[in-house]
């Protein structure tokens, strides 16, 4: 079966795991397939997007074009040729050290990463 080609937009914090690319093109018919293809190509990305049980992490939002897949068919959402898939992480930067106790080295902007392998 010929699968359509989609573009996945990678947010800055995750680009280090995809050879610094801002977008990755994958062949897929659903969002789930796209993500599987992405982590197959870039295995270091897996632990940042999926739990150990293989579920997409709750704080990772996925969009097809401008629609949140939670309001479509979730990971079964179909993608067409040329669709844009976006990974939209929560980011919290704004006013360094401003308002709550933080890790002393956690400077402006935070992104949460696993540092110990699975």
């Amino acid at each position: 079966m010929l699968r359509p080609m989609s573009k996945i937009h990678i947010p800055t914090p995750l680009r280090q795991y995809v050879d610094k690319q801002s977008t990755v093109e994958v062949k897929c018919s659903t969002v789930g397939e796209a993500m599987s293809a992405l982590v197959a190509k870039h295995p270091d990305l897996r632990r940042h997007l999926y739990t150990e049980e293989g579920k997409l992490r709750a704080f990772v939002n996925l969009y097809v074009n401008d629609e949140d897949i939670r309001y479509l068919q979730k990971e079964a959402t179909a993608v067409k040729e040329g669709d844009n898939i976006s990974i939209v992480p929560s980011i919290a930067g704004g006013a360094e050290n401003a308002l709550s106790p933080c890790h002393p080295e956690r400077s402006e902007g935070s992104w949460f990463l696993l540092v110990v392998p699975d």
Binding site: R57, A58, F59, S110, W111, V115
Partner: peptide, 14 residues
Amino acid sequence: PPPGLVPSCAEGGV
């Protein structure tokens, strides 16, 4: 982001 995921200091900067 849930506990157990730790902030990466190296990821800061703007």
